[in-house]
Nucleic acid binder design. Structure first.
Lengths: 384, 384
DNA sequence: CTGAAAGCGCTTACAG
DNA sequence: CTGAAAGCGCTTACAG
């Protein structure tokens, strides 16, 4: 009777059946089709020549056996896995999520798989991740290096001939394909926009985690003195700080270093704390510029907490076009990086390297666009 | 002279050097160490027994040759790749990004790699993705199925004995490990909270993409009539609609089907359009509940565009705890799914299957929590 | 504890 | 066009 139907028995049966049915191999197909494994391999693998009749026999046999190719065996011979490895900072960060999607778009189109790891911006984790990917024989790697100076593992990787593309950050002296954002000019333009609106005291909320030689104050002094700053291997947040200083320089507006906020750690909470302190000062700035999405979020939280109204009491330009910037009244103007396109560009470059093209190292700096919305107005004159 | 330094030449040299240095294999190490490949394999692979002296010789030789294991060869023999495949909807969606991070946490800890694909909720892409992953011999798959009825490919996959865990959605009659959210109760509690605050006309902004038998109106009618609705294999948005109806039922508040908005497609823009129309009606609801993050975003955009103030003119409860909900004044109350924990749970279950544990199929429904912030108040009485 | 041999599932020259 | 044989880089019984 159906009421007494015991489902656990069914499961056991299924399991047993399963264990008894090993996967079909090319040899099995060849045997059933009455051809050699070489011939079966040729039709199933789509290489070499085979007559129509044999092709049919093999296809029929493969169909009957439910043959599925084993990419491992093929890769072992060809030396290619059609898999690319990616080391991202943290997939939860929309920046990386979009970059990964871009990489995935290209990979999928070319029939490549994507092995993804998170480094959490930890050097040790990044190293482990690269090792894992190398052992799995990925055809190439895209990495967002968390160390822009040393990164011996990446130098070794490149020296060993492994296709490698850097994303978002560069490594000093490692001349290989990379894609990033034109950070200095993007930040400069954003801050120029603020200056042009009449702002003279502009706060900067930035990560600035690694210590540049001499720290922020000395960095600003050098940038202001017009000393050529080697910006290529700088972390993005330092590059954006450079753009901030340059905008002041061009407009002959002095930089007040106390307005440059260093969150010191990469979290919205740290940015919020720093920004909260800044905005409660008597001489608080009339505008703020943030150097990435996470900083923008922290700054916004601080602004909301203080109940400051944008743009009447405070103007703001953010970084990265996060969803809420479009609908949070009055609309937050922001510097939008072409995140997905960056991922696509990186993947294309890597695929070119993999296909063996002998191309000299390229640096692709993608332009970021200033998306103007309603968060910038003339400074509140009652303030000063 | 340094000025005449030609960097292109250096590059060529490096390339040439590279091509000349093939990777060291176990055979190379064995030869240099003066032992058999079996012995070298035993120490390098960490299996079997080896004397201390031989172990040293092998290690030294491996070090000298820069030996790196080839996981492909090992996998071909062991039949295990220590790689798990994931088919997500779209990595850009924070829901999937967090779930993926959860999966990654566990995988990384256990030394597993992660092969990630996007289905874009397209059945064809999902099928292709699964095929790719299977060919690459992943040890198991975690998939968020875009079809909850048919999904023959997933049934076949499971029947073939491949470890498989479903996430977010179930497949009708496919009794395998899965993790999801307790959607019905989560939605019911959120709507109950709204009713308890005094709301009687509550809008629902939902995806509701697949047609349930008879459509929304008939679905609501059946749910209201107390007919037992088989909710397990329903899409999450339909389950959340069910919770919405149940909350009304319990409180003896009639459901007005015209308040149930069907975005019809999975995008914030569609949700915004639908919501905009709803909120401009004379008999607009005094509160809205949205059934996922994307819908919440669209609804928020519509609310902002109309300049409605929350909660005085409109109360709202969202779904998924998105960053902006915390700082957008007055704070948006929302139903928070434990996204990362869901990914971790799915990964753990998959790993158990992979390790061969003979466990009957488990359904893990994780509780979502109502995060109360400032977006709910009593209805604006001037409205009615 | 160690080595010779076989083999995982394919592809690749090499003859015919 | 087709097949026999070798081999990719490992691991696994099997003797010793």
């Amino acid at each position: 009777m159906e009421d007494q139907f015991d489902s656990s028995q069914v499961i056991m049966e299924v399991r047993a059946k399963v264990a008894a049915k090993p996967k079909a191999t090319i040899a099995d197909v060849a045997r059933l089709a009455g051809v050699s494994t070489a011939t079966a391999g040729r039709v199933l693998g789509g290489y070499g020549y085979t007559s129509g009749s044999k092709k049919d026999q093999v296809m029929k046999a493969a169909e009957k056996l439910g043959y599925k190719p084993n990419a491992l065996a093929r890769s072992l011979i060809t030396g290619k896995t059609r898999t690319i490895g990616v080391v991202a900072g943290d997939i939860r960060n929309p920046f990386y999520a979009f970059v990964l999607r871009g990489i995935s778009n290209i990979a999928e189109k070319e029939g490549f798989g994507l092995l993804i790891t998170n480094s959490d911006e930890s050097f040790e984790q990044e190293t482990r991740a690269v090792d894992l990917l190398v052992e799995k024989q990925v055809d190439g790697l895209i990495v967002s290096p968390c160390d822009t100076r040393d990164s011996a593992h990446l130098r070794a990787l490149h020296a060993s001939g492994t296709p490698l593309v850097l994303i978002d950050r560069a490594v000093e002296g490692l001349e290989i394909d990379r894609v990033g954002t034109a950070n200095v000019s993007a930040a400069r333009e954003a801050v120029q926009r603020l200056i042009q609106a009449g702002h003279r005291r502009i706060g900067l909320v930035a990560e600035l985690v690694e210590e540049a030689e001499g720290g922020v104050v000395s960095f600003i002094a050098r940038a202001q003195a017009g000393e050529p700053v080697e910006s290529a291997a700088l972390y993005p947040s330092w590059q954006r700080l450079l753009g901030y200083v340059q905008a002041h320089l061009v407009a002959r507006v002095p930089v007040d270093p106390t307005l440059v906020l260093r969150a010191g750690e990469y979290s919205a909470e740290a940015a919020e704390r720093a920004c909260l302190a800044l905005l409660q000062r008597d001489d608080r700035p009339s505008a703020v510029f943030t150097t990435d999405g996470t900083m923008s979020e922290g700054a916004m939280a601080a602004i909301a907490k203080l109940g400051l109204s944008i743009p009447t009491q405070l103007s703001m330009i953010g970084f990265d076009d996060l969803d809420w910037m479009a609908f949070l009244p009055p609309g937050i103007s922001t510097v939008a990086q072409p995140r997905m396109a960056m991922g696509e560009a990186a993947a294309r470059m890597l695929l070119e390297q993999i296909s063996g093209a002998d191309i000299p190292p390229r640096t692709v700096l993608m332009p970021a666009s200033l998306v103007e919305r309603g968060s910038v107005s003339a400074p509140d004159t009652s303030l000063r």
